[in-house]
Amino acid sequence: MIRTSETMYKYLRPDKTFPHVWCPGCGIGIVMGALVRAIEKTGFTKDEIVLVSGIGCSGRMSTYLDFNTLHTTHGRALSFATGIKLANPELNIIVVMGDGDATAIGGNHLIHSCRRNIDLTALIVNNNIYGMTGGQYSPTTPMEHKASTAQYGSIEKPFDICKLVEACGASFVARSTTYHAKMLDAMLSRAIAKKGFSVVEAMSQCPVQYGRRNKKGSPVDMMMWYKDNSVSNPAFKKIPPGEVGEQFPVGILVDIEQPDYLERYSKIVKKACGDKL
């Protein structure tokens, strides 16, 4: 068993201020722990990992972890990561984004990274809200839920991130929650090892901006909600459509083999060089 706290000491930047910036009970710390355990499992050195993050609560992750870290502009993390991967395919690139980061302002980059199947790992921390800016509704805020910009309840239909990226052609798609922290690190290590574009959606409680406004109770209550409503993917498929309710599937949802962008690009190089190769 990989112990989180002990492993963290190996990967945290000692000169940063701890405890970290996230609110008490925030799930992002659990997600970061799972990420570190996953990396520890893959056996890559710190120098071989690039951690790219966007803007928002989850974006702070890049500050704390001792890898090559890049804290980009809001929503653009995947485009920066694409450039890094193309320039140095040897690097293992993990892109941490929030739900607003990845599916609102960065939605275009997300769907095209899937379509392109570039070999990156996207970790989308979904807390259903814009936490850092004060609880505005995001593309994953459920209908009728409240946010600081949806005081009467959200009237927009939320995204199912996993369905979205699956439809766009991602090679590996998985979902886990902060309650299923152990499954989360297993999904992440699979995603990191996977060649092609992989997405792991980590459902993570925001007890302050989302939970409090929507009477979701304590951080523990929110995690228990994940426990009660999550269903393994095979079991989820057997639920009759009318009885799904708030339930959602967790685990590996997509895992397919297909050539990634760089593999296809090497064919272009061969064509361009003709006999010269």
Partner: peptide, 24 residues
């Protein structure tokens, strides 16, 4: 693994057998 702040560690005591917890 569920502590968001890495503030709790469980150290193995040689007398007790370690159990791997399986979820869902």
């Amino acid at each position: 693994i569920h502590c968001p702040d890495y503030a709790i560690t469980v150290k193995k005591n040689p007398d007790i057998k370690e159990v791997e917890h399986e979820e869902t």
